[in-house]
Every structure is written in C-alpha cells, then in structure tokens.
C-alpha cells in the first residue's frame, strides 16, 4: 500500500509541476488539484490515499509565489493523476513493486507528461525506490524518508584513515622488499 501511495505521490507531485507564477495561497485551480490528491481511491478492495506528508509537500509547493496554475493546466494535471490511478485500480495491485512493467511504465509516462507541462523534472532512483520532483534542479517534493542523518560527518576522518593505512602498507611492502625484517 505504501508503494502504491508512493507512486500516486509521484503523479501528484508531477501534477504540481504545472507551475508558472502568481500570488501566494491556494486559488480555485490549486485547491482543485489538492482535493484530487486527497481523494481516496479503491485498489483491490482497499482504500488508498496519499500520506499526509506528501499532500503537505504538494500544498507547500502550490502556495509558492512563483506558482500559478490555469484551469486548463489544473485539468491536465488532474487528468494525469486520474490516468495513473486508473492504472493502479485496473491492476488490482496495491504494491507498486508488484506491478507489471507495462503498468509501471504507463504510470511513469503520466508523471513525466505532467511534469513537462511546467518544466519540472522527475528523478527516479529505482534502487532506493525514491522519486524526487525538481524545479530548476531544486527539490520540490520527494517520497524520501522524513528523518535524515543528523550525526557527525566522519567522511574526512575515514578518508584520512584510509590514506594512513595505505601509507603503512606501502612502508611494510618497502621494508619487506629490502628484507629489513630479516636478521
């Protein structure tokens, strides 16, 4: 179910891609999109809806000053959302990973089509099963985990330690070649 939601999210987020520029807040067109995102759909007898954090991402984006959506754009976005949802519903599968390649491709096509309308790009990491929607290279929405790594960055220490180990290995190799350990 979570995977389904993730996919639906993609579609949704792409829908948000329909952006140009206008005043802050949600007008009728933006509200219409949000409402469609909040709508529950029935897949395989189960009610499925987008997680709250994804809806909020969409809402945060739609409230931006530089985002304006015409009625036609909103309809096109919603149409893409509906197409993706229909693909899911017709498959009867609630896990995206279990979808056929054909269905996955169809949904991704819906997403990309919606994104292209407003110049957004979609980055898909199939290994991590994450999707990031970008505007001018800056993230707009993602299904990545909410909690990030907030510990010390020890990368530099690992690099220096590795260099020292290589240096030690080199010294030992030279010493062995020169038979320095032989009496």
């Amino acid at each position: 179910m979570k995977r389904i939601l993730s996919m639906a999210i993609c579609v949704t987020l792409l829908a948000f891609a329909c952006i140009t520029a206008s005043a802050a807040g949600l007008d009728a067109n933006k509200s219409k999109i949000l409402d469609s995102l909040k709508t529950e759909v029935s897949v395989g007898g189960k009610k499925v809806s987008l997680p709250a954090e994804l809806v909020v991402q969409a809402e945060n984006f739609l409230k931006r000053d530089d985002v304006n959506i015409t009625s036609e754009q909103a309809d096109e976005i919603i149409d893409n959302i509906n197409k993706a949802m229909n693909t899911l519903k017709s498959s009867g599968i609630t896990s995206i990973s279990n979808l056929s390649l054909k269905d996955k491709t169809a949904i991704l096509d819906n997403i990309r089509a919606a994104a292209e309308v407003v110049g957004l790009t979609v980055s898909v990491n199939s290994t991590a099963k994450t999707i990031v929607v970008l505007k001018d290279g800056v993230p707009v929405a993602t299904n990545e985990v909410a909690l990030k790594i907030t510990g010390p960055d020890v990368t530099a220490i690992y690099v220096f330690s590795g260099m020292f180990l290589v240096l030690i290995a080199g010294c030992i190799a030279v010493a062995l070649k020169a038979r320095l350990f032989v009496k």
Partner: peptide, 25 residues
C-alpha cells in the same frame, strides 16, 4: 532543517525539524 512534508509555523499542523547532534541540537 525543516522537512518539506511538514507545515510552516502558524498553519496548525506538525512541524518536523532536524539538526546535527554535534551542532546546535
């Protein structure tokens, strides 16, 4: 940093903020 899946202050919804444990937090 605030998670973009949470709301800004004043909207009446959760605000999720992370920070390094060797920094301010």
């Amino acid at each position: 940093g605030q998670y973009i899946g949470s709301s800004l202050p004043g909207y009446g919804r959760p605000i999720l903020i992370g920070g390094h444990n060797n920094g301010a937090f």
